[in-house]
Amino acid sequence: MLRLSFVTGTEPGKWFTRFRDRTAHGQLLATDSEDPVAELLDARADLALTRLPDPRVTDEYHVVELYREAPGIALPKDSELTLLDRLSPADIEGEIINWSTPPDGRIDIPAVRTGLQVVAANVGVLIAPRPLIRVLARKQIEHRDFLGDVPVTTIALVWRRADDSEAIQDFVGIAKGRTPNSSRQAAPKRTAREKTLAKQQRRAAGGADERTRRSRRR
Protein backbone atom coordinates (compact mmCIF):
# COMPACT_ATOMS: atom_id res chain seq x y z
CA MET A 1 0.00 0.00 0.00
CA LEU A 2 1.22 3.48 -0.92
CA ARG A 3 0.29 6.29 1.49
CA LEU A 4 0.21 9.68 -0.18
CA SER A 5 -0.61 13.04 1.38
CA PHE A 6 -1.48 15.89 -1.01
CA VAL A 7 -1.58 19.56 -0.14
CA THR A 8 -4.76 21.62 -0.27
CA GLY A 9 -4.96 23.43 -3.58
CA THR A 10 -3.91 20.46 -5.71
CA GLU A 11 -6.28 18.14 -7.56
CA PRO A 12 -4.35 14.95 -8.33
CA GLY A 13 -7.35 12.64 -8.75
CA LYS A 14 -6.45 11.66 -12.34
CA TRP A 15 -3.04 10.45 -11.13
CA PHE A 16 -4.70 8.28 -8.51
CA THR A 17 -6.89 6.65 -11.14
CA ARG A 18 -3.95 5.97 -13.46
CA PHE A 19 -1.87 4.55 -10.62
CA ARG A 20 -4.64 2.12 -9.66
CA ASP A 21 -5.33 1.15 -13.27
CA ARG A 22 -1.73 0.76 -14.46
CA THR A 23 0.07 -0.77 -11.49
CA ALA A 24 -0.30 -3.73 -9.18
CA HIS A 25 1.09 -2.17 -6.01
CA GLY A 26 -2.11 -2.63 -4.03
CA GLN A 27 -4.13 0.05 -2.31
CA LEU A 28 -3.40 3.76 -2.67
CA LEU A 29 -4.35 5.66 0.48
CA ALA A 30 -4.53 9.37 -0.43
CA THR A 31 -5.40 12.12 2.04
CA ASP A 32 -5.87 15.88 1.60
CA SER A 33 -3.72 17.82 4.06
CA GLU A 34 -2.81 21.40 4.88
CA ASP A 35 0.67 20.13 5.83
CA PRO A 36 1.69 16.93 3.98
CA VAL A 37 5.36 17.41 4.92
CA ALA A 38 4.42 17.00 8.59
CA GLU A 39 2.77 13.69 7.72
CA LEU A 40 5.92 12.64 5.89
CA LEU A 41 8.08 13.57 8.89
CA ASP A 42 5.81 11.62 11.23
CA ALA A 43 5.87 8.56 8.92
CA ARG A 44 2.12 8.83 8.37
CA ALA A 45 2.77 9.14 4.63
CA ASP A 46 5.28 7.56 2.23
CA LEU A 47 4.99 10.32 -0.37
CA ALA A 48 3.93 13.95 -0.19
CA LEU A 49 2.55 16.14 -2.94
CA THR A 50 3.44 19.43 -1.36
CA ARG A 51 3.99 23.13 -1.90
CA LEU A 52 7.54 24.49 -1.89
CA PRO A 53 9.53 26.26 -0.55
CA ASP A 54 9.57 24.42 2.77
CA PRO A 55 12.74 24.48 4.92
CA ARG A 56 11.90 21.06 6.36
CA VAL A 57 12.62 19.45 3.00
CA THR A 58 16.34 18.74 3.32
CA ASP A 59 18.87 16.60 1.47
CA GLU A 60 17.35 13.56 3.16
CA TYR A 61 14.52 13.76 0.66
CA HIS A 62 14.05 13.24 -3.04
CA VAL A 63 12.28 16.19 -4.67
CA VAL A 64 10.60 16.12 -8.08
CA GLU A 65 9.13 19.48 -9.07
CA LEU A 66 5.99 19.17 -11.18
CA TYR A 67 4.72 22.67 -11.88
CA ARG A 68 4.70 26.26 -10.68
CA GLU A 69 1.62 28.00 -9.34
CA ALA A 70 0.56 31.38 -10.67
CA PRO A 71 0.10 34.09 -8.03
CA GLY A 72 -3.53 35.09 -7.65
CA ILE A 73 -5.66 37.68 -5.91
CA ALA A 74 -9.04 37.10 -4.25
CA LEU A 75 -11.65 39.85 -4.57
CA PRO A 76 -15.18 40.42 -3.31
CA LYS A 77 -17.59 39.31 -6.02
CA ASP A 78 -19.13 42.78 -6.30
CA SER A 79 -15.79 44.62 -6.52
CA GLU A 80 -15.20 46.76 -9.61
CA LEU A 81 -11.74 45.19 -9.78
CA THR A 82 -13.34 42.00 -11.09
CA LEU A 83 -13.71 43.81 -14.43
CA LEU A 84 -9.95 43.30 -14.91
CA ASP A 85 -8.45 40.00 -16.08
CA ARG A 86 -5.17 40.68 -14.23
CA LEU A 87 -4.34 43.00 -11.41
CA SER A 88 -1.15 44.84 -10.51
CA PRO A 89 -0.11 46.50 -7.24
CA ALA A 90 -1.22 49.83 -8.69
CA ASP A 91 -4.75 48.46 -9.20
CA ILE A 92 -5.16 47.59 -5.52
CA GLU A 93 -3.56 50.70 -4.07
CA GLY A 94 -5.52 51.71 -0.96
CA GLU A 95 -7.15 48.27 -0.59
CA ILE A 96 -6.95 46.33 2.66
CA ILE A 97 -4.73 43.27 2.12
CA ASN A 98 -5.98 40.58 4.47
CA TRP A 99 -3.10 38.23 3.70
CA SER A 100 -0.30 38.06 1.13
CA THR A 101 2.35 35.49 0.22
CA PRO A 102 5.37 36.43 2.37
CA PRO A 103 8.88 37.04 1.00
CA ASP A 104 9.98 33.51 1.96
CA GLY A 105 7.19 32.01 -0.16
CA ARG A 106 5.75 29.84 2.60
CA ILE A 107 1.99 29.52 2.45
CA ASP A 108 0.01 29.46 5.69
CA ILE A 109 -3.19 27.71 4.61
CA PRO A 110 -5.16 28.38 7.84
CA ALA A 111 -4.29 32.07 7.51
CA VAL A 112 -5.42 32.04 3.88
CA ARG A 113 -8.73 30.47 4.92
CA THR A 114 -9.26 33.16 7.54
CA GLY A 115 -8.34 35.94 5.11
CA LEU A 116 -10.76 34.64 2.52
CA GLN A 117 -13.58 34.82 5.05
CA VAL A 118 -12.90 38.53 5.37
CA VAL A 119 -12.83 38.97 1.59
CA ALA A 120 -16.15 37.11 1.37
CA ALA A 121 -17.54 39.70 3.78
CA ASN A 122 -16.75 42.33 1.13
CA VAL A 123 -13.65 43.66 2.88
CA GLY A 124 -10.26 43.93 1.19
CA VAL A 125 -8.32 41.47 -0.96
CA LEU A 126 -5.99 38.51 -0.49
CA ILE A 127 -2.89 37.42 -2.42
CA ALA A 128 -1.91 33.74 -2.57
CA PRO A 129 -1.30 30.99 -5.15
CA ARG A 130 -4.28 31.13 -7.48
CA PRO A 131 -4.92 27.34 -7.47
CA LEU A 132 -5.23 27.49 -3.68
CA ILE A 133 -7.62 30.45 -3.85
CA ARG A 134 -9.68 28.58 -6.47
CA VAL A 135 -10.14 25.59 -4.16
CA LEU A 136 -10.86 27.57 -0.99
CA ALA A 137 -12.90 30.46 -2.40
CA ARG A 138 -16.56 30.84 -1.53
CA LYS A 139 -19.33 31.98 -3.87
CA GLN A 140 -18.88 35.57 -2.69
CA ILE A 141 -15.30 35.62 -4.02
CA GLU A 142 -13.76 36.11 -7.46
CA HIS A 143 -10.09 35.56 -8.25
CA ARG A 144 -7.70 36.88 -10.87
CA ASP A 145 -4.00 36.62 -11.81
CA PHE A 146 -1.78 38.96 -9.83
CA LEU A 147 1.20 40.62 -11.50
CA GLY A 148 2.96 41.89 -8.41
CA ASP A 149 6.37 40.91 -7.12
CA VAL A 150 5.23 37.79 -5.27
CA PRO A 151 7.36 34.67 -4.68
CA VAL A 152 6.41 31.82 -6.99
CA THR A 153 5.37 28.59 -5.32
CA THR A 154 6.06 25.13 -6.72
CA ILE A 155 4.15 21.88 -6.40
CA ALA A 156 6.48 18.89 -5.97
CA LEU A 157 6.56 15.26 -4.97
CA VAL A 158 8.76 14.66 -1.92
CA TRP A 159 9.78 11.43 -0.24
CA ARG A 160 12.49 10.20 2.07
CA ARG A 161 15.50 8.81 0.20
CA ALA A 162 15.69 5.85 2.55
CA ASP A 163 12.08 4.91 1.78
CA ASP A 164 12.33 4.87 -2.01
CA SER A 165 10.28 2.09 -3.62
CA GLU A 166 8.88 0.80 -6.92
CA ALA A 167 5.43 2.09 -5.96
CA ILE A 168 6.76 5.61 -5.35
CA GLN A 169 8.74 5.60 -8.59
CA ASP A 170 5.70 4.47 -10.56
CA PHE A 171 3.53 7.20 -9.07
CA VAL A 172 6.20 9.82 -9.79
CA GLY A 173 6.35 8.62 -13.39
CA ILE A 174 2.59 8.93 -13.78
CA ALA A 175 2.61 12.44 -12.30
CA LYS A 176 5.35 13.42 -14.76
CA GLY A 177 3.25 12.22 -17.69
CA ARG A 178 4.76 8.81 -18.38
CA THR A 179 2.52 6.70 -20.61
CA PRO A 180 1.81 2.98 -20.11
CA ASN A 181 4.16 2.15 -23.02
CA SER A 182 7.13 4.23 -21.87
CA SER A 183 10.00 2.76 -19.90
CA ARG A 184 11.01 4.14 -16.53
CA GLN A 185 14.61 3.01 -17.00
CA ALA A 186 16.96 4.37 -19.61
CA ALA A 187 18.69 1.86 -21.87
CA PRO A 188 22.01 0.81 -20.29
CA LYS A 189 25.12 2.16 -21.96
CA ARG A 190 27.29 -0.42 -23.75
CA THR A 191 31.03 -0.69 -23.38
CA ALA A 192 33.37 -0.23 -26.36
CA ARG A 193 33.89 -4.00 -26.53
CA GLU A 194 30.14 -4.65 -26.56
CA LYS A 195 29.71 -2.13 -29.39
CA THR A 196 32.50 -3.81 -31.40
CA LEU A 197 30.99 -7.28 -30.94
CA ALA A 198 27.56 -6.00 -31.96
CA LYS A 199 29.05 -4.47 -35.13
CA GLN A 200 30.79 -7.74 -35.98
CA GLN A 201 27.55 -9.64 -35.48
CA ARG A 202 25.69 -7.26 -37.81
CA ARG A 203 28.40 -7.67 -40.47
CA ALA A 204 28.31 -11.45 -40.14
CA ALA A 205 24.53 -11.44 -40.42
CA GLY A 206 24.73 -9.19 -43.48
CA GLY A 207 27.25 -11.53 -45.14
CA ALA A 208 25.06 -14.54 -44.46
CA ASP A 209 22.06 -12.78 -46.02
CA GLU A 210 24.11 -11.93 -49.13
CA ARG A 211 25.24 -15.54 -49.55
CA THR A 212 21.64 -16.68 -49.20
CA ARG A 213 20.47 -14.27 -51.91
CA ARG A 214 23.25 -15.45 -54.31
CA SER A 215 22.36 -19.10 -53.81
CA ARG A 216 18.70 -18.36 -54.62
CA ARG A 217 19.65 -16.66 -57.89
CA ARG A 218 21.58 -19.67 -59.15
Rank of each mutant, 00 (worst) to 15 (best):
L4F: 08
L4G: 01
S5I: 00
V7I: 14
T8E: 09
G9F: 05
T10D: 01
P12W: 00
G13D: 14
K14G: 08
W15M: 04
F16Q: 11
T17I: 11
D21L: 07
R22W: 14
H25F: 14
G26P: 10
L29D: 14
L29V: 15
A30R: 00
D32V: 15
D32L: 11
E34P: 06
D35G: 05
P36W: 00
V37Y: 00
E39C: 04
L40K: 01
L40G: 02
L40N: 04
D42Q: 09
A43F: 09
R44L: 12
A45P: 00
L47T: 02
T50Y: 00
R51N: 03
R51Y: 00
P53S: 05
P53K: 08
D54Y: 06
R68T: 14
R68Q: 10
R68H: 08
I73F: 07
A74T: 07
L75A: 03
L75C: 06
E80W: 12
L83V: 13
L83M: 15
D85R: 11
R86S: 13
I92L: 02
E93L: 11
E95R: 15
I96L: 12
W99M: 04
P102W: 05
G105P: 02
I107P: 06
D108C: 10
D108V: 14
D108S: 13
I109H: 02
I109W: 01
R113F: 04
G115N: 05
Q117H: 13
Q117C: 07
A120P: 04
A120H: 03
A121K: 12
N122I: 05
N122G: 05
V123I: 14
V123T: 13
A128Q: 04
R130I: 07
R130M: 08
I133W: 02
R134L: 09
R134Y: 01
V135Y: 02
K139P: 03
E142N: 14
E142Q: 13
F146S: 00
F146D: 00
D149P: 07
D149M: 12
V150I: 15
P151F: 06
A156H: 06
A156L: 08
R160H: 15
R160Y: 07
A162F: 10
D163L: 10
D163T: 13
V172A: 09
G173V: 13
K176S: 13
K176L: 15
T179L: 12
T179N: 08
S182R: 11
S182A: 12
R184S: 12
A186M: 13
A187N: 09
R190T: 15
R193Q: 09
E194T: 08
L197K: 13
A198C: 08
A198W: 07
Q201E: 06
A204R: 13
G207N: 09
D209S: 12
E210T: 10
E210I: 12
T212H: 03
R214Y: 06
R217G: 09
R218K: 09
